[in-house]
């Protein structure tokens, strides 16, 4: 686990201004997210994650797989501190470092963190606002009022999410009027509009039909050139299709993490093999 960083790599990780940082060339072998021996509990007593450690490299898609209740979604929600919203929940051990900053440090503002670590939810959840306002929302809350800039970002984000052609004539109609797949892509557009460095996806396709799923998967593959993506999925085929690395969780522990091809062709652990061959879960 103990990946040592060279000083040069540290230099490349120096924070830059938000809106340009994603354009930075990243070399393979960088670490964007470092999860260090983490235990997590919802009530302070029973740990639902135990001794989880892993590194996530930039511009890669990392998939979390595992049976229901294995803690993969919990871990994902630790990465942008969405678990803070649950009273009493928190890390009981270890640390999570993103861009070399311990995100549970008191000096870290969870709100700032979430501007850098975006999230796409299982059930698409656009606001009951217009398509335009949905995408512009993240910028508006940062106080950006410049109409030209908003227009530009909305167009770019929708284009990046592959939705621009479909909605460009009805940007003012409600986001809730789109089809399920479109709504999910709208949510992705909304997330990338604030230019995060990392996008967390919590089973983004589980509520969608196969065609929409395929489009989202394509989108994920395109997006990884710009963002680091962590995706939780139940669907092992999806993991093989979109991810570069795969982590298998079982009963709150990280069993194995490796290149996706390796995991699915030649897992080193017995439990992993049982799971991917469909013997349980």
């Amino acid at each position: 686990m103990n990946v040592t960083m060279s000083e040069t790599q540290m230099d490349t990780l120096k924070p830059e201004s938000e809106l340009t940082s994603n354009a930075r060339p990243v070399e393979a072998g960088d670490v964007v997210i470092e999860i260090d021996d983490v235990n997590f509990s919802y009530d302070g007593n029973k740990d639902v994650l135990r001794d989880v450690s892993m590194n996530i490299a930039p511009n890669e898609v990392t998939a979390f797989i595992g049976p229901s209740g294995c803690g993969k979604t919990t871990l994902l929600r630790c990465l942008n501190r969405m678990n803070d919203l649950i009273p009493g929940a928190g890390l009981t051990k270890g640390a999570i470092r993103i861009l070399d900053t311990n995100i549970y440090d008191p000096a870290v503002d969870s709100i700032e963190l979430r501007k850098h670590v975006g999230m796409v939810f299982q059930k698409y959840n656009p606001f009951p606002k217009s398509i335009y306002e949905n995408v512009a929302y993240g910028l508006r809350i940062q106080g950006i009022r410049n109409k030209a800039m908003l227009d530009e970002v909305v167009r770019e984000s929708l284009t990046a999410a592959g939705l621009w052609e479909e909605v460009k004539d009805r940007l003012d109609s409600s986001g809730l009027g789109l089809s399920g797949g479109q709504q999910q892509r709208l949510c992705i557009a909304r997330t990338i509009a604030v230019q995060p460095k990392i996008i967390l996806m919590d089973e983004p396709c589980s509520a969608l039909d196969p065609i929409s799923t395929a489009r989202i998967e394509d989108l994920i593959t395109q997006l990884k050139t710009q963002f680091t993506i962590v995706i939780v999925t139940h669907n092992m085929q999806q993991a093989t299709r979109v991810s570069d690395k795969t982590a298998f969780f079982y009963l709150g522990e990280l069993i194995e993490m490796a290149d996706t091809t390796k995991i699915f062709s030649n897992p080193s652990m017995r439990q992993t093999e049982d799971y991917i061959s469909g013997r349980f879960g």
Binding site: M82, L85, I111, R114, M119, Y137
Partner: peptide, 25 residues
């Protein structure tokens, strides 16, 4: 709840979420 979560995940503060998403809804 999804509206609140989505807003928070975009880096909105609690009050921004309340005044821009929850109240208008």
């Amino acid at each position: 709840k999804a509206f609140t979560e989505a807003s928070l995940a975009l880096g909105a503060s609690r009050l921004q979420t309340i005044f821009r998403v929850v109240m208008p809804t």
